[in-house]
Design a protein around this nucleic acid. Structure first.
Lengths: 244, 244
DNA sequence: TCGGGCTTTTGATCTGTATCAAAGTCAGCG
DNA sequence: CGCTGACTTTGATACAGATCAAAAGCCCGA
């Protein structure tokens, strides 16, 4: 999926490329990026980074889906981000990471050595500017998710999540229209994203099916039958909101 | 409170000053900031910005506490940020704001006209770099809060919140040691921050009192009797985490 | 094709927190 | 001072979602 990302003109995999911006990179900058760049692939289920690990690299997701989560001592887990193609991983000027990053599907990352990347950040103004925009988009998304976690019902959470899947798979051009959409997470992972249990996720997903809103091809693949009903169930006001 | 912020050397109120950084501003840059700067004060309870409002200014909190929240159509509210001295309000390169900002106590803001501020952002590299750091700190805090909203019990939420109040009032030098600490929010506002109801907040706060963890001077002022117990009740692992 | 180990579904029951209701407390102000 | 309105506490009850338990479905390798 999302192969077209790789076929774009130069610099297409750089972590500041998102939403077609790195046109601002000049030849010299692209050269510098190339030199500190490498690709890594992880199988579904593989841990990518563990809390406390050294941040040797920052990276951009090229293909696949990874999860970003926090774990409490007694094992409770909350996913705090779902990393899909074009999302950024890592934090410049931090030596370690404070979250767990795990591959949910097979994942390919475009990695840049952190320290030289920071040098670029310090010398090339538009890199910091672009990264700022990315961070603020993430912040807006995190705050939308706080509303979901703190105030939405189970049904609203599920509907919001499914709607987000629909929208992101459209944007990324993952599924062609009328191809079934994919849930890249297990029921258990979805429950960790939504602050629910896996049983509740299963029940609510089946409720949406029973209500004629979704149809499942298999456990992981589905189609939206009634987009309006799905949106109405999400609790969001008319003009969308979560991510883009 | 927090008067010392104003007595710091030049540029102390600029929104990128936080945690002593704007030493990097040179005389010319400070001059530019001064020209687009103004102070505004709001009484407790006043709305500062409403969802959809034009972002004419970006600002830094100088004194007091403001809340940042999202509201659903049916009136459910989730606070997504608590803005205390040195916190940043607004988003460069966005014409409108997507949240409600309300003064919780009397608040003084140091405001900068957004458009000229964006020009500064585009021309002075270390402004974007500093703002990036601020945004990433906010993002980390938002993600910690997602764990709280999604997975913590009512008691853990309350303990985490009180601990955060203790820590931030220490950092900002608001209360001298052994002066009682302040809850800058009503029970209702706390409930919106923690994803609870005001009744649950009241019950849990009294439970911490009954358990000999806190002592209340009045509804708004308290002392921590057993810091270790408070921390243990927060569910966070040893080394803190929420904000700094 | 069968079997074993996942993941998911479904059912029964429990519980933490919400909801509803009423009384109590406090600050400000006439 | 004592009234008024906003905030808080306390109690009784309801219920959404958690928890516990077991059956069903599905994938994959032998």
């Amino acid at each position: 999926m999302s192969v077209d990302l790789l076929s774009r003109p130069k610099c297409s995999e750089c972590p500041i490329r998102h939403r077609a911006v790195c046109s601002r990179c000049d030849a010299d900058e692209i050269e510098q990026l190339e030199q500190i760049k490498s690709y890594k692939t992880f199988a579904a289920g593989d841990p990518i980074l563990w809390r406390g690990d050294d941040l040797t690299y920052v990276a951009s997701v090229v293909r696949g889906v990874a999860t970003l989560s926090k774990t409490m001592e007694d094992g409770r887990i909350q996913m705090v981000g779902l990393l899909m193609p074009s999302d950024f991983i890592g934090r410049p000027n931090r030596k370690t990471i404070e979250f767990d990053v795990v591959a949910a599907t097979e994942v390919t990352l475009c990695c840049f050595q952190r320290v030289p990347f920071e040098r670029l950040l310090a010398t090339v103004p538009h890199v910091a500017q672009r990264l700022l925009e990315i961070a603020m988009d993430e912040l807006d998304a995190a705050r939308d998710w706080m509303l979901l976690l703190g105030r939405k019902t189970a049904r609203e959470k599920i509907a919001t999540f499914v709607e987000m899947m629909v929208r992101r798979q459209h944007v990324d051009g993952l599924g062609l229209d009328h191809e079934p959409l994919v849930l890249p997470l297990t029921r258990d992972e979805i429950s960790n994203y939504l602050g629910l249990t896996l049983e509740t996720v299963s029940r609510q997903l089946n409720a949406l099916k029973r209500d004629g809103v979704l149809r499942f091809v298999d456990r992981r693949r589905f189609e939206v039958i009634d987009m309006a009903a799905l949106h109405a169930a999400s609790g969001d006001d008319s003009d969308g909101g979560v991510l883009c």
